[in-house]
Simulated scan of single mutants.
Amino acid sequence: MHDPSAIAALLRARFRRHLPSSLNEPTRPERRLVELPLHIAWSGLRTLDLDRPRQRMSLYRTVLAEGMRDDLCRFHNRGILLELWPVLHKLISRAIKDIWEEAFPERRP
């Protein structure tokens, strides 16, 4: 049987390693349509239209959960993250939410 607290600690460490150094680092993709690489979205919808609110939310949720530091910088934008955070933080895992809110207190609802 696996120790839930040990698993939680491993997840937190993983997500902490992926954090950008600042919220100013991420920049929004220049194109309206964004195709996520396979290492982020290995099933389901991979091409997302950033002008469609549900797809934009899906992009941010997926990249937060599966992306590496470079992916977070490539696919995210500070203003949009802050705008989406009141809903987005309810759709992501507690480990991701806690790490991001600890690192960037302005994200707290």
Score class of each variant (00 low, 15 high):
Pro20Leu: 08
Ser43Asn: 11
Glu30His: 01
Arg14Ser: 04
Lys97Cys: 15
Asp98Lys: 10
Arg108Glu: 08
Asp70Glu: 14
His76Leu: 13
Leu50Val: 12
Val34Ala: 01
Arg69Pro: 05
Gly44Thr: 12
Val87Trp: 13
Tyr60Ser: 06
Pro53Ile: 00
Pro26Asn: 01
Arg31Asn: 13
Ile40Ala: 11
Leu91Glu: 13
Pro29Asp: 04
Val34Gly: 12
Pro37Lys: 12
Arg32Cys: 12
Arg31Tyr: 04
Met57Thr: 10
Ile92Glu: 12
Ser93Asp: 04
Ala65Asp: 10
Met68Gln: 07
Arg16Val: 04
Arg94Ala: 07
Ala65Cys: 05
Lys90Pro: 00
Asp51Gln: 15
Leu38Gln: 15
Phe75Asp: 04
Met57Lys: 10
Leu88Phe: 08
Gly79Met: 07
Met57Val: 02
Ala41Cys: 10
Arg14Thr: 05
Phe75Tyr: 15
Ala41Lys: 11
Glu83Phe: 10
Glu25Ser: 10
Arg54Met: 12
Met57Asn: 05
Arg107Asn: 12
Ala6Met: 08
Leu38Ile: 15
Glu83Asp: 10
Ile80Glu: 14
Glu83Trp: 07
His89Met: 05
Ser5Thr: 11
Pro37His: 11
Gly44Asn: 08
Arg78Met: 07
Pro37Ala: 07
His76Tyr: 00
Arg94His: 09
Arg14Trp: 08
Glu106Lys: 05
Arg69Leu: 09
Ala6Lys: 09
Leu48Val: 13
Thr47Ser: 14
Gly44Met: 09
Ser21Tyr: 08
Thr62Lys: 09
Phe15Ala: 02
Pro109Trp: 00
Ala103Lys: 00
Leu11Thr: 04
Glu35Pro: 01
Arg52Lys: 15
Pro105Glu: 10
Asp71Asn: 05
Arg107His: 11
Arg28His: 02
Arg54Gly: 09
Glu66Leu: 12
Leu50Thr: 15
Arg31Phe: 09
Pro20Gln: 09
Arg32Pro: 07
Arg46Trp: 08
Ile99Arg: 01
Arg12Thr: 11
Leu91Cys: 06
Pro4Ala: 05
Asn24Leu: 14
Ser93His: 09
Arg31Ser: 15
Ala41Phe: 07
Ile92Val: 15
His2Cys: 06
Pro29Thr: 12
Leu88Gly: 10
Asp70Thr: 11
Arg69Asp: 06
Pro4Ile: 07
Asn24Met: 08
Glu101Tyr: 06
Ile7Leu: 06
Leu33Gly: 02
Ile40Lys: 07
Arg56Lys: 15
Ala95Glu: 14
Tyr60Gly: 13
Leu45Gly: 01
Arg52Ser: 07
Arg107Gln: 05
Arg14Asp: 01
Arg31Ile: 01
Glu102Asn: 03
Leu23Gly: 03
Glu83Asn: 02
His39Phe: 11
Asp71Lys: 01
Leu72Gln: 01
Pro86Asn: 04
Leu45Tyr: 02
Pro105Asp: 12
His18Asp: 04
Pro86Val: 07
Arg17Ser: 11
Gly67Lys: 05
Leu10Asn: 06
Pro20Gly: 05
Glu106Arg: 11
Ile80Ala: 01
